[in-house]
Design a protein around this nucleic acid. Structure first.
Length: 837
DNA sequence: GAGTTTGAAACT
DNA sequence: CAGTTTCAAACTC
């Protein structure tokens, strides 16, 4: 397994201590982080959802990026481009160890054991890593460095451990369990503890519980690995209501499992041989030191029978839809720059993810060295369309090395993984992965749906998944699930022909050598996997230089060539209406450039928007769009609504000011009124002419001139309103000349929607003002007639407060105004014009 | 599994 | 920038 690249690879691992220690030592914030709290709260949900494939979340561990910044590349170019590879646990192996692990898994106390186990492993790993590090030169600023910091995550340690497990050269001792010779160890433990995964009291237990780890025999280590694996299999952790094992543990496990899979695939290659050299059966983890490069490291290293199928998990899924299904807390994204957001989380989980953001970011920022940023994003955001796990519905995410200068790596977390593992254990052979996937899919579906449903309500408006999405998701995955469950392994494999079986896509390039963006792998910044059916593929670690050059070349032409295709789309509306319970909240993500579908009507995966589970929008050039996630036309409407509403608000504000002006000029009205109150109302005209030269008033009087006689004012009002609403005429007719009566049932009936209500309220306010104004121009037979002697405030009071009333007035107004809604601003403007305010 | 359709990517 | 070609995925049979 020795390869020229081994050294480089190892380097990645070695860098951990310094950076990792720093971040870990800073773990205290993590303890109280919203992340932990949040997870704790939602733990009930999380456990079972393990099946979800964290699509977008490519995991807690950031896979090595194929493309890294020049600086990073210099250190470990060889590492980056490799697919995530780790030793893996094989289903059979798991089964083999069922007995042993079962003991620890069955008992609720197993959680503690689990924690202990993790801890012990962690320590061991740390030590081993340290050993390795001793022989390795830490390279500051290197990607590994970042990884290391990133590795504050216990999982990473495990990964290291896994590596170590397989390395006979690495010695483990009990001392490792009890002490922390290295800060790294301490820090890691601290993290675990902070997350509640391990309590200090269990340190000793760790040794006890994991005596086998003390031994130097890799097999024993593997056993312990298996044991823990078994625990995961048993799903105890997941199902444990116990708080002892926080969700973080789940994540770890998930990550572990995930990595396990990933490691299966690439671990051997990564660590030992060039990608291609990796045998289908990746090392059992015992054959040698496995150094996980980059942030990606497995918590555990299960032996190796990692089926080729599992390998697929190492790949990131290229499709989007599933990515969005990801469970919220499961995933953590890491990205070094805003340019590339890696991973996606189910839209449903946005809220949770956002909650996590703070902690994650905090953690990420804790170390300046670490270029990795944990970013929780809603589905699809910041993701390259091709960078998303798609096939696997929920809870499971695949991670891949990202060929991005910007992306440092990303984590995968799959809380549902335990389920996956469990199912894997019950399956063997090639079908393992598929079965696993299918089962995971299946189990994840219901769970995810439920979760999604729940989360949906929690999501901020802007992140809410449309019902369409939900429905689609449900139906789609339900179907997939059924298909998977009803199919034999072979059939399943067949059905996921375009995927690795882990749900991750695999390319089938024949002419591009996987060096063009036609290739999903290349486009996503990952190396092709063995499961890819590409021909003459150059998108492999051994051609790293070529890949990088090609990529750079493309980026030079188009800097955004590898930028995420799906980006968050925050509209003005979004910002404005957040408080409105998401009334108009449009989709959360949009395709960067929009689609150009001509025939698919955006209802097939040909459409990238559809594929990404995002709605089409005005940037799309699609024709006949029927995107269930949001039609382009609908988007336009939404925008229009938003715009209208904003305008309305502005106008209202303006109207307020103008009406205030009127109020300030009440005396004018009073005078006018006094004039009109002359014995003969015939003076109305003259009153206007005597309006003190006040043009405004004159005009107003002119407008209301016809009101000089009884009822005329009322009719005038009604007429005015009637110009906008026929219903107003009806209202007038049936109101005994009282414009504020008899709401129309018809119109009222249509006021159910909140939006409409809002509009109505707005209109009502307007009408109130209108009435207020009209109050200054009463007519003898008007509603206000009885108040003529008290023209001003008193009159208004009577109007609005009296039993005649405001309430009835309001109702009537509603009725009238409902039809008055269209072009409300116009209405308002009209009124203003009429009044010449 | 082969062939067709589709739309993005690449090319001109 | 627009039109065309190429390509591989998605889809259909």
């Amino acid at each position: 397994m020795d390869s020229p690249k081994t050294t480089t690879i190892t380097t990645a691992t070695t860098t951990i201590p310094a950076a990792a220690t720093v971040s870990l030592s800073d773990s205290p914030p993590v303890q109280e982080s919203p992340f932990s709290n949040f997870i704790s709260k939602i733990s009930p949900i999380k456990p079972v959802k393990a099946a979800h494939v964290a699509q977008g979340l490519l995991g807690i561990n950031s896979p090595p990026l194929v493309f890294t910044s020049p600086r990073a590349i210099s250190d470990r170019q060889t590492n980056f481009l490799r697919r995530f590879q780790c030793p893996q646990i094989s289903g059979p192996e798991i089964s083999k160890n069922d007995g042993r692990s079962k003991n620890s898994a069955d008992d609720p106390r197993d959680l503690r054991k689990c924690s202990t186990y993790l801890k012990s492993r962690l320590i061991v790993d740390v030590q081993k890593r340290n050993n390795i590090n001793n022989s390795e030169q830490h390279q500051p600023g290197s990607f590994s460095g970042c990884v290391d910091e990133y590795l504050s995550d216990p999982v990473d340690v495990d990964c290291a451990d896994s590596v170590n497990l397989v390395s006979p050269n690495v010695k483990r001792s009990d001392d490792a369990h009890q002490s922390s010779e290295s800060n790294l160890t301490n820090s890691k433990i601290a993290i675990l503890e902070s997350d509640g995964i391990i309590d200090m009291g269990t340190k000793g237990d760790a040794s006890k519980d994991m005596p086998e780890q003390d031994g130097e025999d890799p097999k024993e280590q593997s056993t312990s690995e298996t044991k823990r694996e078994k625990i995961e299999e048993e799903g105890n952790i997941v199902e444990q209501p116990s708080h002892v094992c926080p969700s973080f543990v789940s994540d770890l496990l998930v990550d572990h499992a995930f990595r396990q899979q990933q490691c299966d695939t690439s671990g051997a290659q990564l660590l030992h041989e060039p990608f291609q050299a990796a045998p289908p059966h990746v090392d059992d983890g015992e054959d040698g030191e496995t150094v996980l490069n980059g942030p990606v490291q497995l918590i555990t290293h299960h032996g190796s029978e990692v089926s080729q199928l599992q390998r697929g998990l190492s790949r990131r899924c290229l499709q989007f839809e599933e990515a969005q299904q990801k469970t919220p807390m499961d995933g953590t994204y890491s990205l070094d720059s805003a340019t590339n957001l890696i991973g996606s989380i189910s839209s449903s989980s946005n809220t949770e993810l956002e909650i996590l953001d703070s902690s994650q970011l905090e953690l990420a920022s804790s170390s300046s060295k670490n270029q990795t940023m944990f970013v929780s994003k809603s589905s699809g955001f910041g993701l390259h369309l091709n960078s998303v796990v798609n096939t696997l519905p929920i809870g499971c995410s695949a991670s891949e090395p990202i060929m991005s200068h910007h992306s440092v790596g990303y984590k995968i977390s799959c809380s549902k993984l335990p389920n996956l593992v469990e199912r894997v254990s019950s399956t063997a052979g090639d079908g393992v992965l598929q079965t696993m996937v299918s089962n995971a899919t299946g189990s994840a579906i219901s769970e995810s749906l439920r979760t999604k449903e729940t989360l949906y309500n929690l999501q901020p408006p802007g992140h809410q998944v449309t019902l369409h999405n939900k429905r689609r998701f449900s139906s789609e995955h339900a179907e997939n699930f059924e298909e998977f469950n009803q199919s034999s392994p072979k059939e399943k494999r067949k059905k996921v022909s375009s995927t690795d079986g882990d749900g991750c896509k695999r390319c089938n390039c024949k002419k591009t050598r996987c060096l063009k963006r036609y290739c999903d792998c290349f486009a996503a910044g990952i190396y092709c996997a063995e499961t890819c059916a590409c021909q003459g593929c150059f998108n492999r670690p051994e051609y790293e230089d070529t890949v990088l050059d090609t990529r750079q070349q493309k980026e030079s032409h188009n800097p955004l060539a590898f930028a995420p295709k799906i980006v968050q789309h925050v509209t003005e509306f979004h910002a404005i209406n957040v408080e409105d319970a998401g009334l108009f909240m449009p989709s959360t993500g949009r395709h960067k450039t929009g689609c150009n579908c001509k025939r698919s009507m955006c209802v097939k995966k040909y459409c990238e928007c559809y594929q990404a589970n995002v709605g089409c929008y005005n940037a799309c050039r699609c024709e006949g769009c029927k995107n269930i996630h949001g039609r382009k036309e609908e988007y336009g409407m939404t925008e229009e609504i938003v715009s209208n509403r904003a305008n309305e608000e502005r106008l209202e504000s303006m109207a307020d000011r103008k009406f205030k002006m009127i109020a300030n000029n009440k005396f004018l009205h009073a005078e006018l009124y006094d004039h009109s109150m002359l014995p003969s109302y015939s003076k109305s005209t003259s009153s206007s002419s005597n309006s003190h030269g006040n043009d405004k008033l004159h005009k107003t009087s002119k407008t209301l001139d016809v009101v000089s006689r009884s009822q005329e004012l009322d009719y005038s009002i009604i007429e005015t309103m009637g110009q906008f609403s026929p219903q107003f005429d009806e209202l007038a007719d049936s109101s005994d000349h009282t414009p504020l009566r008899n709401p129309s049932p018809i119109t009222m009936a249509s006021s159910s929607s909140k939006m409409r209500d809002t509009a109505i309220i707005s209109q009502l306010r307007l009408l109130e003002k209108w009435i207020e104004v009209c109050a200054f121009f009463p007519s003898p037979h008007s509603l206000y007639r009885s108040h003529r002697s008290h023209p001003t405030e008193k009159l208004k009071k009577q109007i609005f407060v009296s039993d005649v009333g405001y309430t009835s007035c309001k109702e009537s107004t509603n009725a009238a105004m409902i039809n008055f809604v269209p072009g409300s601003d116009t209405n308002l403007m009209f009124l203003i014009d009429k009044l010449d305010i």
